[in-house]
């Protein structure tokens, strides 16, 4: 790599990083400031973090909201990975005319805005509540079920499988592995980066999801983190210092998860299986 190229790469990446990270840093700085300073856009760290934190912990139950959000996001991510990768694998490896039609049909489900599905979905869970209260309104299951399978993820797994070296699957079959064995022993380990990307994206969208949990969860003790933050802003004179503190606490898990998972995006990982 030439010197020029190197300088060019670094300056572009540094610039992109600075622009990207600025609001994030400001958010952290703001969590140490008084409400008035936050609204004025103060850029320097202050000394109010502990006070903001105490106020936050006194007024709302952040811990249980974090636990609720974690439960929902972890279950959603694990189950979603399984269902979507099985389907993505199935659609691509066992390709057939009728499956392609089904696949395109499933893609349709991505195209409607969620707002349009909310009322029918709510009615559906309302009637489920009468018989099976375990998955009815105001349960975590009701939050998870409608969002755990997305055509989006199936589509992603299928497109990634297109670039997958299929010969190695054949090798596995010849070695006498069952079809599920091929999937779990060969496909899953080889597709590690795809799983990492999919898990990050799924966790993040589940962690931040707002509209559906808002309508389906009723009891305050089941509240998730985004709902809690929304409530903090419900006042005519919201305390932005406290809100920013809550946001920092809410954002860190997702950011941390990304930092841990991104190690899987190392060039040449595929080399090991070639």
């Amino acid at each position: 790599m030439s010197k020029f190229k190197q300088i060019f790469s670094y300056s572009v990446l540094i610039l992109a990083s600075v622009i990207s990270i600025f609001p994030f840093l400001w958010m952290i700085v703001s969590s140490t400031n008084k409400s008035v300073d936050v609204t004025k856009g103060r850029l320097l760290p202050g000394s109010h973090f502990m006070q903001n934190l105490t106020n936050l912990l006194d007024t709302v139950d952040v811990v249980s909201a974090l636990i609720n959000s974690a439960k929902i996001s972890i279950i959603t991510t694990v189950v979603a990975m399984l269902i979507a990768s099985l389907a993505g694998y199935g659609f691509e490896i066992f390709k057939s005319k009728s499956k392609d039609i089904l696949f395109n049909f499933l893609l349709l489900s991505m195209m409607i805005p969620f707002a349009a599905l909310m009322v029918p979905l709510f009615r559906m869970f309302g009637s489920i509540s009468q018989t099976v209260s375990m998955i009815g309104i105001d349960t975590l299951a009701a939050v998870i079920l409608p969002t755990v399978t997305t055509a989006f993820l199936i589509f992603f797994f299928r497109q990634s499988t297109k670039m997958f070296p299929k010969e190695i699957l054949e090798a596995g079959r010849i070695d006498g592995l069952t079809e599920l064995g091929v999937f779990f022993r060969i496909y899953v380990p080889t597709m590690k980066t795809t799983y990492a990307a999919a898990a990050i994206i799924t966790f993040m969208s589940s962690w931040n999801s707002y509209l559906w949990p808002l309508v389906v969860l009723q009891s305050p003790e089941k509240q998730t983190i985004p709902l809690l933050i929304s409530n903090l802003g419900s006042s005519y004179s919201p305390d932005f210092g406290v809100i920013m503190t809550a946001i920092v606490i809410a954002t860190l898990p997702a950011a941390l998860l990304f930092f841990i998972m991104q190690k899987h995006f190392v060039a040449g990982m595929m080399g090991s299986v070639k």
């Binding site: 609001p23 958010m27 802003g233 809100i243 954002t251 997702a254 950011a255």
Partner: peptide, 15 residues
């Protein structure tokens, strides 16, 4: 770099 550039979509909408 990767984490920094990814951060915007994790950052809460409110912030």
């Amino acid at each position: 770099f990767r984490t920094a550039i990814f951060l915007p979509c994790v950052t809460s909408l409110v912030a």
